[in-house]
Amino acid sequence: MTGMADKPTAAIALRGEHLWLRAARGRDILRDCSFAIEQGSCVAILGPNGAGKTTLLRLCNGLTIPSSGNMFCFDERINSATARKIRRRIAFVSQFRGMDKRQPITVFESVLTGCFGKLGLLRRPGRRERQLAEQSLEAVSSSHLAGRPLGHLSGGEAQRAAIARALTQEPDILLLDEPTASLDWRAKAEILQLIGQLRQKFSLTIVMITHELNALIDLSDRIIFLKNGELVWSGQVAEGLRQERLSAMYDTPVTVIHHHGRPVILM
């Protein structure tokens, strides 16, 4: 990634080297992707649908193992033998898929499950873990939801609960797959603001798939553009949000205007 010389001391949290994910037939899902993500940074993965964004995110925590190439988390190589251990320090909030309203689990219980991987087999969650879950709910301003059945939450509330579960894991790295998908305007704004706050508060490295281009200037440091399984560009946010680049990325005319010195993207 360009510009790494600016902060030579920052450790590299996630590094992909020539990652390929081959499909049995047809086009490969990811082709020769290389990138490095500095510790403490917030990186947005952008690209049209089907570009391979979720796959790239899942390679970052070993939920998917590449066909070839190497994926590293803090210099430890992720493969099928190490993935489960490494995953304990990488929290993952998957895309909101809707929930069964009758699911037999409360919000608190669900948030508590975040630490179960780290806790290890045959150990029950004790006081420390319960406190941790309470603090996580507090951090996402959702303590009042603790006793509610998980399935009764609205989209925005469910997303907060999912982020709280991720925080209970006490992660170094937080992966978010379209955290604002299918939310209303207000919930979107609140979740994006929350992500920014949590990053500061917990010194997290954040990798996020998003289509919220207008929020990136405040939220992210860098952008990775994916298209057709290839990493086509990566760099600073302000440089990435150019009219020609976005129009070419999404194959549709995009207008970028500047308002009080900030880029505003119109589609």
Binding site: F92, T113, F116
Partner: peptide, 23 residues
């Protein structure tokens, strides 16, 4: 009894359970 917490995590959300390091 022995694996209740893992079972609970998997039955609640299998993918998230896998993502936090549960088998």
């Amino acid at each position: 009894v022995l694996l209740f917490k893992e079972i609970q995590a998997v039955l609640c959300d299998k993918e998230s359970a896998a993502a936090c390091g549960i088998a």
